[in-house]
Design a binder for these strands. Structure first.
Lengths: 209, 209
DNA sequence: ACCTGAACACCGTTCAAGT
DNA sequence: ACCTGAACACCGTTCAAGT
């Protein structure tokens, strides 16, 4: 029985794209085709009209390709900021903050961030200074989250309550979602992570926390 | 360069075991060896002193083998104590399950567990088999969580709703709390982690999710 | 029924060779 | 620097053939 590789009806990369961008385009178009679209080297390379070797030249490992895709995907999913923009609903503004906490700024790789954090804070017994550094960082992030909650509370979008506790809870959920993104979950990981943020945001906005 | 298959020092299956049980024994012993031990057909078959074909005869798919392993593994991690004991309040029972998910059984170190998970799933590019293993394990844990939710729902302690979504959310919170326990937070970390579980459990029990 | 081992269609990665 | 395509060492699965 012949293979399914009939050469038919593959979407073609837009003309004028450089090889590297054709690869990103191909991977994006395949991710967009829903779960089950395996991002295999050969499948992506074929759609990008590029050899496997060329793909490997631009993205030395399959993981590197995935890491390069994350910012692109999240850019499509993430709304713009505007935390003080009272014209956008409070829920959207809170979610935007949580999503930005979840995904590193500037297209940095989430996996890189985890490798660094692991090395620095877990693998080797952290020194007193490093412990302090970590805690200061966490405190700052929580402080900013509390600010956002205070803003929303001033608008009446969040009922009175313990903002610090709420912020801690939201941080925990963000951390959990982050773990699940860096673990070898499937293409549905991003959807699940964002869904967890939705649930947490709703719990806070409804004064359930 | 020669392969690593030196034929050396593989643990031998206990004598007198039937072929099917040798396979389960081999898979269990490999899971117990920590990172890098992929549950591939050939590796398991070799350790079980059985051909790949024979393995496939007893377990028609790799997924079937994993499914046969999971109850064994998850029983070690998540013993189902008094989940059906209706004399203790539902909230306490749910919290007990979440806390057992948070903390490794048998006094094992949470940090050890993280080091292993990091090594196995993040640091080195996980193979297809290891990815599948991780996802199967997560699926099994979530399934057990759904069972608990269904039990509580049958008692009227949890309003009707999407139990799978709730289970996913609870897993995310547990993961987040776990990260915060292993990170160099202060002595308040345990209090905060347990508090996050409280918040999440309340959100679910109140039908807020 | 149980088991063997070769074969098939994949996979990610490496690499000598071209431009 | 960029790209090719073959080759390597895996993977899960199938299957004719044996007992």
């Amino acid at each position: 029985m012949p293979t399914h590789r009939t050469g038919a009806a593959h979407p073609e990369p837009p003309a004028g794209l450089r090889s590297r961008d054709r690869i990103l385009w191909a991977a994006a178009s395949m991710l967009g085709e829903g779960p089950g679209a395996a991002l295999s080297v050969r499948a992506v390379a074929e759609r990008a009209r590029v050899s496997p070797g060329s793909l490997r030249h631009h993205f030395p490992t399959q993981r590197a390709l995935m890491d390069a895709m994350l910012p692109i995907v999240s850019e499509l999913v993430l709304p713009r900021d505007g935390i003080d923009d009272a014209s956008t609903p409070p829920r959207e503004r809170l979610l935007a903050v949580l999503r930005r906490l979840l995904l590193p700024e500037g297209g940095a790789s989430l996996r890189e961030a985890w490798l660094t954090a692991h090395e620095r804070y877990i693998a080797t017994e952290p020194s007193q200074a490093i412990r302090a550094e970590y805690r200061a960082l966490q405190r700052e992030l929580r402080r900013r989250l509390e600010e956002v909650l205070a803003t929303l509370r001033a608008e009446g979008a969040v009922p009175p309550g313990d903002d610090e506790r709420r912020a801690r809870f939201l941080m925990t959920v963000v951390n959990g979602a982050s773990v699940e993104l860096v673990m070898p979950n499937g293409d549905e990981a991003m959807r699940d992570a964002l869904d967890a943020l939705d649930v947490a945001a709703d719990a806070v906005l409804d004064g359930r926390v």
